[in-house]
Amino acid sequence: MTRMGVPVFVAALLLLQVVCVGALSAADARLAWLDAKGYTVQATITHEDAKLQRAANNTPENRQAVVDTGKALQNAALDEAGAWLNWKKLEAQEDPLVPDDLKQRIYADVDSNLDKVTELRTEVAGVTNEFELGVMSLKMIGKYFELLADVARNVGLMWANVGSAHADRVAEFEAKLRTTAQSVNASQDVMDKLDAAASEVETARTNIANAEAAYELVRIPGTPFLKFSEGNSYLRAAQANLLSAVASLNQAYVAITTQAGV
């Protein structure tokens, strides 16, 4: 191997590794969304500062600064919406537990709303004064719901679907372990653990059904983002139920294998 051979070999391996871990792109897209959220917060602070400056000293330069920072804020909000939409598309794409019809609905909604983001960006670029900025701000508040509501509803339903698949899987393992426990005359403690797991799965199913009902209400008119958060809260509760169930199954599993002398 020549002196140059090693760096080239290392570079090729690193490149291949990047290709191999390409499946993490939904996780990367989430980080990009979090970054975009951070930029929106920064742009908001900058715009508020500009408005304070203008209030203290109403010069043409300060008025122009309000327009410029306002446009930057609107673009940041559109970037954030675009980043979220891209992330949701990749999330649906990569998840094997999401049914195809739901995936297709999410793809269509994302693509259509990314087009709307582009249109809004053109409108923001056309803003030249504070009056137009104010009109655009009002328009953006309403459009923001429109941009994200359809995708949020379908993403929520996608998550509920995945939650149900997880609940089914936990229930399946519980049933298998119960069969095994009965065949080896496992202790009452093992049966109690399995009962606890079954009970947690049932509670999780109730939470998932509540989440699904909340996500169905992520629509305009209404309070789509509040309903989305409500659905998320139910799913977080279901997630805790299922993790508790798996922990109980794990304890039962260890007890059974110990008793069976495996």
Partner: peptide, 21 residues
């Protein structure tokens, strides 16, 4: 594997623009 898959799920909320425009 099931525990890891359940644990890995994140349910991020969304915020509107009313506080930032």
């Amino acid at each position: 594997a099931l525990r890891q898959d359940i644990e890995s799920r994140q349910y991020d909320d969304l915020q509107d623009l009313s506080n930032s425009s």
